[in-house]
Design a protein around this nucleic acid. Sequence first.
DNA 1: CGTACGCTTGACAAGCTTCAACATAAGTGG
DNA 2: CCACTTATGTTGAAGCTTGTCAAGCGTACG
Lengths: 275, 275
Amino acid sequence: MVGEQLIPRRRARCCSDEVRCEACGLYALCRTAGLENPDSDLLDRIVARHQPVAKHEILFGAGDAFATVYAVKSGAFKTSITPDDGREQIIEFHFAGELLGLDGIAWGRYPYTARALEPGSVCAMSFDHLDLLGARFTEFQSHLIHQLGGRLAQDQWASTLARRYSAEERLAGFLLSVSERLGAHGFSADEFRLPMSRDDIASYLGLATETVCRLFRRFQAEGMVIARGKYTRLCDLDALRGLFPVQAPGGGAVIEVAAAPGVHALSAAGGGRVP
Amino acid sequence: MVGEQLIPRRRARCCSDEVRCEACGLYALCRTAGLENPDSDLLDRIVARHQPVAKHEILFGAGDAFATVYAVKSGAFKTSITPDDGREQIIEFHFAGELLGLDGIAWGRYPYTARALEPGSVCAMSFDHLDLLGARFTEFQSHLIHQLGGRLAQDQWASTLARRYSAEERLAGFLLSVSERLGAHGFSADEFRLPMSRDDIASYLGLATETVCRLFRRFQAEGMVIARGKYTRLCDLDALRGLFPVQAPGGGAVIEVAAAPGVHALSAAGGGRVP
DNA sequence: CGTACGCTTGACAAGCTTCAACATAAGTGG
DNA sequence: CCACTTATGTTGAAGCTTGTCAAGCGTACG
């Protein structure tokens, strides 16, 4: 009997730094596994919740056997690979509410290393004992397919972004993307802490650290942002959108779909919007 | 009763330009739908096989409702979007044996346009009547999850490639990727026809057409490739790998996994290799 | 056989990286 | 709590890669 005690949908700190379950990428999967039923301990056998993670802690390493999908509850992570030349290449950043490790499903191993950018917590869903789900397994898969499909479209987009655009456009696109993703999970969309270093941003965008620095300075001189260290405020979203005019397809769709109740992943075209 | 007549696993032209079913990305899904049983017409109600496609023909357009996943049987396709500025941006190329349209699953619409680069044929799997699969639906989903996971890892990789590397490295990586993908589906890995224009390659790699031209010429001058128009021969794979030292993760894994019999998608860590 | 499109090549300009030096912030031990 | 050390961030100048513009060439297709 763990029940509500371990599922604090609304914690004391309402505007806490921890994402609500309803806004988490794992929500649909957890719900399938019995989240809605406090008496069921099925969920607890599949999902280890609220695991604290220290800064710089490694969640999984490149090549580790795939067994778990993580959801970031609070804090932020980076995924990266380190080729032979030793220079770390950032693959993606992962903020509260987003999933980590899905890419390992096909290969059976995680293709990159996941490391915490700051202290935080995760929920860990074990994929080893999904047979416990029984009849719910099919529904579970449907939600998983939705998650994968959404990530696929998002990554195609990020890939295209990186190829086509100039340094200025990339940084604008990056800031807008962070803003949108934080906003989609219930955090402030125009004022936040960028938990990663300038080096990480540069690696992610395929630029030199110095270029990122200069661009932050220029954006600030032009009144578009205020950047003091990791603290970042987007003052003029429209100006940033002017620099990066293309809207990401399905940016927030992952969440909408995942949170929509009763969606049949393979036939529904997005389902209804979450109020 | 169509049976074997419509499933020519070995056509008259053994080394035909058409990929074998066993090497096709849809194979595991087709098998689930009854490919192994010639008497079953279930497959025919779900998959429209060997549809001819003319050069430049559009398979689906950006924004069209998602209903079908295509497998390229022969020929090649490009997927692209055309933003407001009117300049077409290539998202990805798709060769024989590869899937098209998976990205539409989450959004319910195809996020880009798919167009034939040359005359070819496709198999079209309708996602509207999957309820026909009945008890096999779960297995079907497992294979689908594998496909999605594989594509996810591959796209992460392509994205990273585009960001980090110089023009020279990108073209080397591109040629190696084409080589590997063609080889994985039973075609020659060091001598092939590049069906797309230099413009398309440039757009895909985020370079100017002229840069791609100059690089082809330089590669040829250095004896790494022979390029006469679309005909391409990779003479020195090792030299190319020297330019682009990082191995793509799970490059051929999609096929291996999809073709492996009886793999349970969510638990198997890659399964056995296909002989 | 002719025309149109794609491909190739050259000259120049711009943007970004690299290298180097310095400033600031974050961590560490006395 | 402060001084020291190390990592991270910022700024400037020089050079190289790549894009842009312009023109000529080859080839494919009607």
